[in-house]
């Protein structure tokens, strides 16, 4: 009887320790999740700030003069546009054998 009681106590103690460890593990996991969520929120906030900075820095009134003065870019003029016919008119038509037939050339 005494042995049975002791065995029961040991089993109960073992179960209690198991529950305790499981609970502790769950709390640690919850803390880790919370930490990760904080990190995600923080990174998302950083992304928001960076996107806002990108939008601010890419304002046309800032980019326009830079593109013009440093890269020599300018808005396209209508004459620079060409339809499909225009492209075909400049395209080289080459036979599979490698021979060139009479036709437009890709060379400018």
């Amino acid at each position: 009887m005494t042995r049975l009681a002791l065995l029961g106590i040991l089993i109960a103690a073992g179960l209690a320790v198991g529950v305790y460890r499981a609970k502790l593990g769950a709390q640690e996991t919850a803390a880790a999740i919370e930490s990760l969520e904080d990190r995600i929120r923080s990174v998302n906030e950083e992304i928001s700030v960076l996107r806002a900075e990108e939008a601010y820095l890419s304002r046309p009134e800032r980019i326009g003069p830079l593109a013009r003065d440093r890269l020599g870019l300018a808005p396209p003029s209508p004459e620079q546009f060409s339809g499909v016919e225009g492209i075909v008119g400049r395209a080289a038509v080459t036979e599979p054998s490698g021979g060139t037939v009479a036709g437009p050339s890709l060379q400018p």
Partner: peptide
């Protein structure tokens, strides 16, 4: 998709 308004902390 260019950003026009956003919310920052």
């Amino acid at each position: 998709g260019d950003l026009l308004a956003t919310s920052l902390p």
